[in-house]
Amino acid sequence: MLKDHAKLMSAFAASGEIIGRKKLQKMIFISKKLAFPFQEKFQFHFYGPYSEELTLRIEELCNMGFINEVKEKKGGYYQYRYSMTEAGEDFLKHYTHEMPQLDECLTFMNDQSSRFLELVSTVLYFDNLPKEEVKEKVFTLKEKQRYTEEEIEEAYQYIENLNKMAKPLQ
């Protein structure tokens, strides 16, 4: 049971601080699509792939004192900041992880905006479809985000770069 928690903790260890619940969801989904062994199930939601399991696991980690969640008021909405606590670091020492490329991939993702990661995760969610159909889905399902053709091309290039980083896994 706690092995899945430890996998998430390793994501926090690699990322340092993650700002935003949406960003956290996208980073784990993208990692899973890159063949990292995250077990959470995702379905398509308002902001792209979303996992209720992940939300519950993060809540459990916060309740156990392994993850620190800080709620900040940002204009008209709240933003959450996540970081690992000392207790979380101690907990993680009891588990071995077979995910050497995870650190590099998560750091690369954490440098991106949640808006861009939403696009990348949406493209990956529909990766079984031809590129033109994926674009159509993005323009339809993400109409309010107003993604451009150029941004979609950037997302595909970004995915290609992530795949190179995670290559030994695949």
Rank of each mutant, 00 (worst) to 15 (best):
S31E: 04
E143N: 12
M99N: 06
I19M: 07
Y80G: 00
K137T: 01
M27E: 10
I152T: 05
D127A: 11
E53L: 06
K93L: 14
I159L: 05
R81Q: 14
T96N: 11
L119I: 08
K71E: 13
K164M: 06
P100H: 04
N128T: 13
V134H: 08
D4T: 03
L2Y: 09
L119R: 05
E60K: 11
F42L: 03
L8K: 03
M64R: 12
R21H: 07
I19Y: 10
F42I: 03
G65W: 10
Y47R: 09
L162N: 02
G88V: 05
C62N: 05
F38E: 01
E52I: 06
Y77N: 07
M84I: 15
K135E: 15
A6R: 02
L34R: 07
A87D: 13
M99W: 07
L102K: 01
E143L: 12
S31R: 02
S121N: 04
Y156K: 06
Y156A: 04
E104L: 12
S31A: 15
E136W: 09
T55N: 13
N163K: 15
L102D: 01
D111H: 07
V123Q: 00
K167D: 02
M99E: 14
I30F: 01
S15M: 13
G48T: 13
K73E: 14
E133I: 07
C105E: 03
E40C: 07
E72H: 06
T55R: 14
Q145K: 12
E89V: 10
L8G: 00
K135G: 04
A155R: 05
Y47I: 03
K23S: 04
T96P: 02
F126Y: 12
K41L: 08
M27V: 14
Y77P: 01
K144E: 14
M109R: 03
Q157V: 02
T107A: 07
H5L: 15
T140L: 15
S51W: 03
F91D: 01
I67Q: 00
K7M: 07
E89I: 11
Q39D: 12
E104K: 10
F12Y: 08
A13Y: 11
L162Y: 07
Q145I: 03
Q145E: 13
E59Y: 11
H45T: 00
K41N: 15
K93M: 12
P168N: 09
P100N: 06
F36E: 06
I18V: 14
F12P: 00
M165Q: 10
